[in-house]
């Protein structure tokens, strides 16, 4: 019995992991192709740029540039080269910045992750108590208020919220929500103080980001809890003489957490999309604005690397949440 169980858990992990690998592969192909779609390539826009500034390159040097970047090769070859590099963490050179893409991304990654993780934690941390409250006191004023507010949170797109927040922050608090470092930390190297300073300034952007996801999680959690609270095993626990709150926390909440955890996987892509657009509105130096610039300047290595990394983040996050789910719910392992 034990052995059988752990084998099926092993199978499950294997299965989910292989799906994720396929997904990341597909994402890499899509990222690569998208970047190749625009007519012309980086070199031509680079040359256009140069000719504007008067520094016109000769035809030979243009051809040389093309060869250097492998642009004369067929698409498949270029993809394989790029993918082989990507696996080693080498994403080529950013032509706009004239720097290694990997180094550039590493620099922006910290704040990107900080925003996304903070957003996720806020969404979770707030959704749990609110969902619990709404379910235990369903039909109360608080429940109605949270639910209506949640609907709006779900409906209004992130970037509009960010825009409103930007306006309100500026108008009434004379604060720039996009400034995530206090003046004394702006040019300082990373330190514990700078980290917490950034975390503090990130709070409002992360809240904006968290609102929609939190509202969605509250809805899911409330519905699941209500479902679970009417189940016979809850009555059994009550019949044992358990205190109501202890009981709700141990049984329904525990079971309602399963769909909750599985929703987390689904929300990760949304979270990453959201963090991109929120940081673009508020002008926070994350991968979002970097991607926008790269796309606008046809900086293809940079853009495709960012696309790939963002997708990979989402896929790996989803994988982790699925594995977490299979760990907390013994039934899942048996089903697959």
């Amino acid at each position: 019995m034990r052995a059988g169980k752990s084998r099926s858990l092993g199978n499950f992990i294997l299965y989910r992991t292989s799906i994720s690998v396929v997904t990341i592969f597909a994402a890499s192909v899509i990222s690569f192709i998208i970047i190749q779609l625009p007519p012309g390539d980086f070199v031509s826009s680079y040359v256009a740029q140069l000719s504007q500034t008067g520094a016109i390159g000769s035809t030979e040097s243009i051809e040389q540039l093309r060869r250097d970047y492998g642009l004369d090769q067929p698409m498949v070859v270029r993809y394989l080269r790029w993918a082989a590099g990507a696996i080693r963490g080498d994403f080529g050179m950013s032509l706009q910045w004239n720097r290694e893409v990997s180094g550039l991304i590493g620099e922006y990654m910290g704040l990107t992750l900080m925003l996304a993780v903070l957003g996720l934690l806020l969404a979770w941390g707030l959704a749990l108590p609110i969902g619990l409250y709404n379910a235990m006191y369903r039909g109360s004023m608080g429940d109605y208020a949270f639910s209506a507010f949640g609907m709006i949170g779900i409906a209004v797109p992130n970037f509009l919220l960010a825009l409103f927040a930007l306006f309100i922050g500026f108008r009434y608090f004379n604060a720039d929500l996009g400034a995530i470092h206090s003046p004394r930390y702006v040019d300082a190297p990373w330190s514990v103080g700078r980290f917490f300073d950034a975390l503090w300034h990130m709070l409002v952007p992360a809240l904006i980001l968290a609102l929609a996801i939190m509202s969605r999680l509250v809805r899911v959690l409330r519905a699941n809890l209500l479902d679970e609270m009417s189940r016979p095993y809850v009555v059994t626990a009550r019949a044992k003489g358990m205190r109501e709150l202890t009981l709700v926390l141990k049984y329904p909440l525990r079971l309602a957490l399963n769909p909750f955890v599985s929703t987390i996987g689904l929300t990760l892509p949304t979270l990453i999309s959201g963090s991109i657009i929120v940081s673009m509105v508020l002008n926070i130096p994350t991968l979002g604005p970097l991607l926008l610039q790269a796309l606008q300047g046809q900086d293809m290595f940079l853009a495709s690397a960012i696309l790939l990394i963002l997708s990979t983040l989402a896929v790996v996050g989803t994988l982790l949440s699925d594995l977490l789910l299979s760990w907390i719910d013994p039934r899942i392992r048996l089903e697959s």
Binding site: I19, A27, I30, I35, P269, I272, S273, I277, Q296
Partner: peptide, 19 residues
């Protein structure tokens, strides 16, 4: 569908739209 959904939409759209 699973693959399509696990790619964050905004960057995907951005890439496509930029093209």
């Amino acid at each position: 569908i699973e693959i399509l959904r696990s790619i964050p939409t905004i960057p995907l759209w951005m890439g496509l739209a930029a093209a």
